[in-house]
Computed example of a mutant assay.
Amino acid sequence: MPFLASADDQKKARLAWEMEDHEKLLLLCAEMGIPHGPHCFYELSLALARKHHTAFKEALPLGKWTNLAGGYLVVEVERLTADLKPGHSALWACYQLIKRDEWRGFLGTGDDPKNPEREDPGGALRKQYYKFKKELWSEVMRDAFKFHEAQNTVPIWESQMREVLRRPNP
């Protein structure tokens, strides 16, 4: 953008760039086999996401580890490790959580020999913790917990968590 140009000239340069970008997007649509229309750029973004982003490539069956369950796990591990006493790592916190009925029931660590989480349920929680730890949804859950702390409604948080763990896919 020519900063020393007049406002009119800057506007003309910006419009020229926008037109150039628009033409390039139309060419990309044509290359991807997307017909020109009112939603072609939306269709282009989906096509590119499916082509390049792993979340769009693999359609996993709906499992118990939803973003909500993972977010609750992240918050609960971080609640337990907040003071970080020696030996109180994420793994330690996961072993503490698995002692609770809601987490043990959620993992279903009963006598089913086909359940891989049965051998080391604390380790299974730790694996999921690290999977969800940096997810955007975990940030949302952290903020939700902070809200409950500020409102002095942590028991409501815990009740909602138990309900989600009892029925992960309503």
Rank of each mutant, 00 (worst) to 15 (best):
L28G: 02
Q128W: 04
P155V: 10
L62W: 06
E58Q: 11
E18V: 02
P116N: 05
P155Q: 09
L62T: 15
F41Q: 13
R166C: 02
A55I: 04
S138G: 12
V77L: 01
P121V: 05
E20K: 12
H52M: 12
V75G: 04
S6P: 07
I156T: 14
L107Q: 11
L15C: 05
R100H: 09
A49P: 05
E163N: 09
H39C: 06
E117W: 05
G108I: 07
Q128M: 15
V164E: 07
C94A: 03
H39R: 14
G122P: 07
P155E: 00
G70V: 09
L80V: 00
L73E: 01
A49N: 11
E78R: 05
W157Q: 12
A82R: 11
W92C: 00
W157H: 01
P86I: 12
W137H: 15
L73Q: 00
H148C: 10
R126C: 14
K57T: 12
Y129D: 04
Y130I: 10
F56R: 13
S6F: 07
K127W: 10
G33H: 02
R142A: 06
K57A: 01
S45C: 15
E31R: 11
T81V: 10
W103V: 02
D143S: 15
G37R: 07
E149C: 13
Q10W: 06
D8Y: 01
R14L: 15
V164M: 07
W92S: 00
